[in-house]
Amino acid sequence: MSDLIKDNWFVILIAVIIIAFVGYFIVDSNKDNVSAKSSRGKDVLAVIADTDITADELYEDYKPFDGDLIYNMYRNAVVGQSVTTTKEMEEEAKKLENTIRSRVSSQSSEAYRDAITAELASYGFDSYDKLYDYCLMTVQQKALNKEYVDAHFDELKDKMKDSKARVVSLIKMEAADPKNLTEEETKKRDNIDKAIESGTFADAATAFSEDADTAAKDGVFGYIDASSTASTTGLGADLLSAALALNEGETSDWIEVQNESTGVISLYKVHVDTTDLDTIHKSKDSDVQDSFLYAIMNDVPGLEVTVLEDAAKKLDVTFEDKAVQTKLENYMAAQKGETENE
């Protein structure tokens, strides 16, 4: 969930109202058939308090809003019926759910939970109790995306050739005053430099780095590319800039990085492990895999829609409401930068 919803929760909450009118979408999970009953010669999309809501009424009153919702509900159905859920997926979804719930419980205001609820509604889930369902859908969709990217990687990687994609590693050294190192700190820095020169960056990181998380992974920080920012990666701007300027196998000089929360300045070296797209794609590091997959999905326009269309071809999806079908097709065409249907 984006942290931005904390600042816009009231606006997003409007989606809760809208979602009540589109809780109709996939009614036959076995046949993947989007159907509707009739009332006054019109297709009924929902029944609320014994009142029929027809397609005409929905599009007349909510035309500016429902494109996203229809697409999201279609996506949920296609993903859910295209991916076989594994125990690992369930565990990953539960972990994600617990993370979100812990953030909600740590907030003093109900507004944060309201914002999450509204965000869930915009994705086609009608209550906060459906948080796990949302999390499982995201995990399933990642699996579906990965399957497609794996099968089409040779053509997709060409679109990433100018992205400066790379996996980088770090060594961190604490210093009371980086500009005036003590004798002990100077010795520590020199020992790290010698270890890098005589061995590997990974070995030096494991032996000397004072960043526990990366030291435990042979210094590996993860995937970055030209679209990465200091805020999204957690790297300081100078460190990120240096990492993107290096070639494969190169190591930076010592760089001073200030922790924005504490103000403490530390010394870092950054090393580019690989810039080879095939190597990155085949990485055994799950974090690198996920980050690279996310980058591909974001850098290739309309790729998510393309993945869904490919999966939907294997399902028996029909639309009895042509207005719904047209709106959905127009929305997906727009996402791919194509001309909408008339």
Rank of each mutant, 00 (worst) to 15 (best):
N30S: 08
E210I: 05
I17R: 14
T117L: 03
V47I: 14
M137D: 13
L136D: 03
E91Y: 05
K95R: 10
D50P: 02
W254I: 06
K42C: 00
F21V: 09
T274W: 06
S2L: 08
S283V: 03
T200Q: 05
D238Y: 10
D287I: 10
D3S: 12
H152R: 07
D190K: 14
A207E: 13
D61C: 10
D310P: 00
V324P: 03
G219R: 02
T117K: 05
T186D: 12
V167N: 04
D253R: 04
A243R: 03
D290W: 02
A216S: 15
V27C: 06
E248D: 09
K42V: 01
S105K: 14
T85E: 10
L240V: 08
P178R: 07
S82A: 08
L277M: 08
Q289V: 11
D287A: 13
D211N: 13
D3Y: 06
L244G: 09
Q81R: 14
A295H: 02
V34Y: 15
I171Y: 01
A312P: 08
A55S: 15
R166V: 00
N33M: 08
E174T: 11
S29L: 10
A121H: 13
T51W: 04
T182W: 06
I255K: 05
Y112N: 02
I14G: 15
M173P: 06
T318Y: 07
I192L: 02
V257A: 13
L235H: 07
N145M: 09
D154R: 04
D52L: 01
N8R: 11
G199N: 11
I53E: 04
K187W: 03
K188F: 12
K159G: 04
L328T: 07
G80V: 05
